[in-house]
Design a protein around this nucleic acid. Structure first.
Lengths: 223, 223
DNA sequence: TAGATTGTTAATCGATTAACAATC
DNA sequence: TAGATTGTTAATCGATTAACAATC
């Protein structure tokens, strides 16, 4: 039986680890769906994902029951469920602030559209960029951001500006009523509790890589 | 007394959570150092970082003792120690494959140089890009990647190519002897155990944001 | 039906927090 | 010295894994 009423009513919320694994489930299920695989067991899927079947089933149980005993999961159904859990079944309108290379990389990422993310405006501070068209959107002056947000309903603000300007933009986004901020600047943004922030840890990630390489090197030398 | 001989000899390795927090320590300590703060206690630093002082001290103890009872930590000394732990005190040579917007964003990120990361070559598949100069480096044909890696010593390969090409590039990098791969393609790369991979979860991060927004919305409606 | 596999409860493992002796 | 704060050990908490009754 497939339901979407979680057995465990999540009182303190869903663990962060579970949430971080949801996009992985999405990716692997999309792969299977694209290859027209009809059914998959927790054992098979978990093996592909290099995790335990227990954990996979435990994770899903936070959101409901999506499988059938003795059968496993219908790939399409589970993917649909994961899409809904992730909020990919509704349109998320976004604005992007900072039309540098990183901003442009995101603007060009067409997969977002397929997943229900819709970029509605691009802002920049640089007069050289303002007025230019990128992917069919004219870059607006960041001075207009506040007004724009009051006129248009926007769920997500994307921050791809230099570090020092990030908090200022975040304040404007919050004031403009966005529900979430996708932050690429390596700073901890201060926002009210009702606004979600997802920080993409680019430089942090490179340092972790450096650590691992170094760690391995010293293990070889000393160990 | 400040030493760098860990008390606990890490048998199974340092927990992933500890490793992920190291760049954070680096950032906050850099901030303090820049503001010429001389000393900091675990309590103060932890409060800034919104974590417990216990956890901070526990984390550091994996690598040695860097403080003084009754005093705390000398900011400079602790930052130096964290830099060394992260491997930022040595030069990490890098090549980048994929000179699209994302690749260019990374090429332009000057902070990397300050942290000991040195970009030595840029590769692309596109004849339009090959031969052009970016930040003083001439873009090479990706067909030359293998030869280049055999001639030059390179620690890190940066993959900013489209998804479908990522594994192929990873294979070339591995064959060329890199120690680590910084991967921006949303695919799980298959590499030997002695090569480290750090995956930057860009699209995954947006889905997590979508989830959180959606979660909060449904909590407001139903809760 | 018999075999397979789920959803969930119980057991284990690891990470975080609390506490405190050591000591600057 | 007395007060403060570390490094570390013990206690708690949460997440992962194992096991199994329910059932397709």
């Amino acid at each position: 039986m497939r339901t979407e009423n979680p057995k465990k009513t999540s009182p303190a919320g869903i663990p962060a680890g579970v949430i971080r694994r949801l996009p992985l489930y999405h990716r692997y299920l999309s792969d299977l769906a694209q290859r027209e695989v009809e059914r998959v067991s927790s054992r098979e899927l978990a093996a592909r994902m290099k995790m335990s079947a227990s954990q996979l089933r435990q994770d899903l149980s936070w959101f409901g029951s999506f499988g059938q005993q003795g059968y496993g999961y219908r790939v399409d159904d589970l993917l649909t469920a994961v899409n809904r859990i992730l909020g990919l079944n509704t349109t998320n309108r976004m604005v992007l602030i900072g039309a540098g290379y990183l901003g442009r990389a995101l603007i060009n990422y067409e997969n977002f559209y397929r997943k229900g993310f819709l970029l509605t405006a691009i802002f920049d501070h640089d007069p050289q960029k303002i007025g230019k068209s990128i992917n069919g959107l004219v870059v607006k002056d960041v001075a207009e951001l506040g007004d724009f947000l009051h006129e248009q309903s926007v769920e997500i603000g994307i921050i791809t500006v230099p570090d020092f300007a990030a908090q200022e933009i975040a304040d404007l986004l919050v004031e403009g009523g966005v529900k979430g901020i996708w932050n690429f600047a390596p700073v901890s943004l201060k926002v009210p509790d009702d606004v979600c922030v997802e920080h993409v840890h680019i430089s942090e990630s490179l340092m972790v890589l450096s650590f691992k390489i170094n760690q391995r090197a010293s293990a070889r030398d000393h160990g």
